[in-house]
Amino acid sequence: MNGASARYMRRRVVNWVSLSMSVLGTLFGLFWLVWLLWTLVARGVRWLSPELFTQSTPPPLAPGGIANAIVGSILITALGVIVGTPIGILAATWLAEFSRRSRLAAVIRFVNDILLSAPSIVIGVFIYGVVVARFGHFSGWAGGLALAIIMLPVVLRTTEDMLKLVPDQMREAAAAVGAPRWRVTVMVVYRAALGGIITGVLLGVARISGETAPLLFTALNNQFWSTDMNRPIANLPVMIFQFAMSPYDNWQHLAWAAALLITLAILALSLFARLVIRSRSFVK
């Protein structure tokens, strides 16, 4: 009896200790999130100002803003979205609608996962090899293409998952009233999965707009106002990297302000994307 109750006590203690560790682990994870966000706010808010959005990056120790980097970032991110999204959606359509179980589809799914987990800096090296080295100069085009390659697998994966969730009865019903296959896909399946597809695109945008590594040797950076995609173009991530590592106070301040802005934008975007997914799953 004594032994049994001792064992019972031990089991309870083990249970209590391990569950406490689990709570501690969760707090450990949340602790870093809070600390990171707090750092950004504490160091970034002070340097937010209207000039940030109206002036270009200054030389060391002169006043200025980050307008050129914001515009440059928007341009190359937009290029990434415009190139990456349609290819991703169309490829996902082929996988989900036309060849769900074929061998080739399985291969492409696997290859897409490789692309999804490929280190982004390797994508940068690849684009450097095929675009930058060929044309002899860094350019906004090269940066946007690198981002497109990172965007593509994200969109493909989420779109395929979402298309597969559309019940087959809807496809059959549309086909039964005589709609050709492409209209079934475009007008019924896409429409049913629209929320999910948009979520995928938003998550893709959130992913590429913070990417630094692939831009280091594609878009590079540009200290001046430029919207010429054929030349090196300023962008927030690389600007933050260079300014944060610089010895100049004003550059570091700009880096913290930019870091705060870009993080808030990306967090808002991914929260929004999650809300879209959540409200969608409610409908089903």
């Binding site: 949340l30 999130l33 750092t39 870091a259 990306i266 967090l267 929260l271 999650r274």
Partner: peptide, 18 residues
């Protein structure tokens, strides 16, 4: 779960600066 997943949304350059 959302808070933990937000850790993945923060750009890696921010982790670096911090």
């Amino acid at each position: 779960s959302i808070a933990v997943e937000l850790l993945a949304a923060i750009p890696s350059i921010i982790y670096g600066m911090w």
